[in-house]
Amino acid sequence: MANIQSQYFKDIDLDDAFFDSLKEDYSEFSSWFTKKAIEDKHAFTLYENTKLMAFLYLKIEDEIDEAIVPKFTEKKRLKVGTFKIDAHGTKLGERFVKKIFDVAVAKKIDEIYVTIFDKHQPLISLLKTFGFSEYGTKTTSNGKELVLLKNLFNLKNDILKDYPIVQTENKHIYGLSILPQFHTKLFSDSILNNESVDILKDVSHTNSIHKIYICAMQAVQNFHKGDILLIYRTNDGQGAARYRSVVTSICVVEEVLTINDFSTEEKFLKYCEPYSIFSVDELRSFYRTKKYPFIIKMTYNVAFKRRVTNGQMIDSFGITPEYWGVFSVTHEQFKKIIKAGEVDESIIID
């Protein structure tokens, strides 16, 4: 099982080899860690079996760090205090970046920063992909670090750099159905109450912000970059659809391709495999048979706090499509759905 958890410092083994590189970078790391343990602070961790694979400590700050140049103005910020991933090709970093944004939104903080040594280029590149930019430097006895900063609402009109913000102006909104056996494997934060976290394996498609959806539904050809998708998990067979089919998440379309856009099978695999729930053998079969010719690449932006049922959509929001595979949603219906789903409306900008 690989699931992010909130864990007290005092319950984390400081002697774990995972922390060796942090001790090398920061001479005071061990004493800092011990202090946090005494203060009953917690961090986000992820274990693969019993092996620590990821550690993230976040701190809300409103004081000024005098070591940062140029000097920050006084403002509440979320500091990424310590962030380390044992990279092993499963997009785990993306999953933790999403966690950083989730906390910022929940705490109503619009500015996030991290100090990081220049040698950590893969992590710097990941953070810049999702909208962090170089603000300045911080110099301590450990050396000079870069300061990367992101303001959630300083929008760049770029799906990734603006992530997780969802912009609805001049965008179409659709419901997109997904079968229960695929749903939580693809949308890890949208797990339903009756599902086990054991199905969340530490694999690329579970961890990633990007998602690949492969299907044969002709209507997805109407999707355009920036369009909004409401992920609709279909009936799991444990009751009537009006209670068991639910909207769980919001995604944003990056692009829609057809299988004929890939000149070779290997190019198709390279594009789909990191973000798709299907195995290499299944993907090869799809390419050869052309059975599922449409490929949607999208970002996973929001997990609903409360699932919105098929019955609510019909009775309360007037959504009654002939076909629930792909269906249109008006902007007014969308506003009502996200309110019912208890989505933080600050990240929805129209």
Rank of each mutant, 00 (worst) to 15 (best):
Q5A: 07
I12F: 03
D13N: 14
D13Y: 01
D15V: 03
D15Q: 13
D16G: 04
F18V: 04
F19K: 06
D20Y: 07
E28Y: 13
F29E: 09
S31F: 08
F33S: 11
T34H: 10
A37H: 09
H42L: 02
F44H: 11
T45Y: 01
N49Q: 15
L52V: 06
F55C: 06
L58R: 05
I60L: 14
E61H: 08
D62E: 14
E63M: 12
D65R: 11
E66S: 11
I68K: 06
T73S: 14
E74F: 07
K75L: 10
K79C: 12
F83Q: 10
F83T: 11
F83R: 13
D86H: 11
T90A: 12
G93H: 05
F96N: 08
F101W: 07
D102P: 01
V103Y: 09
I109G: 08
Y113M: 09
D118F: 04
K119T: 05
Q121M: 08
Q121A: 06
L123G: 04
S125H: 10
L127F: 11
L127T: 10
G136L: 05
E145F: 01
L148F: 11
L148K: 08
N151H: 10
L152I: 14
F153G: 13
L155T: 15
N157I: 00
N157M: 03
D158L: 03
I159K: 01
D162N: 10
T168I: 12
E169Q: 14
E169M: 09
N170R: 10
N170F: 09
K171G: 05
K171E: 02
K171T: 05
H172C: 09
I173H: 07
L179R: 06
P180W: 00
Q181G: 07
T184S: 15
F187H: 04
F187S: 07
F187Y: 15
S190D: 05
S190G: 12
E195H: 03
E195V: 03
D198C: 00
D198E: 07
L200Y: 08
K201C: 02
D202K: 04
T206W: 08
I212A: 01
I214E: 05
I214F: 05
C215T: 14
M217Q: 13
V220K: 01
N222P: 01
G226M: 06
G226E: 03
D227E: 01
D236N: 12
Q238L: 12
R244I: 06
S245E: 02
S245C: 04
I250A: 03
C251S: 12
V252C: 04
V253Y: 04
V256L: 04
L257G: 00
N260P: 00
E266Q: 15
E266I: 13
L269M: 10
E273D: 02
Y275A: 08
I277D: 10
S279I: 04
E282T: 13
R288M: 00
I296E: 05
M298K: 06
T299A: 06
F304N: 04
R307S: 12
T309V: 05
M313R: 01
G318R: 04
T320K: 15
W324E: 02
V326A: 11
T330S: 15
T330A: 05
Q333Y: 03
I337M: 00
V343W: 01
I347F: 01
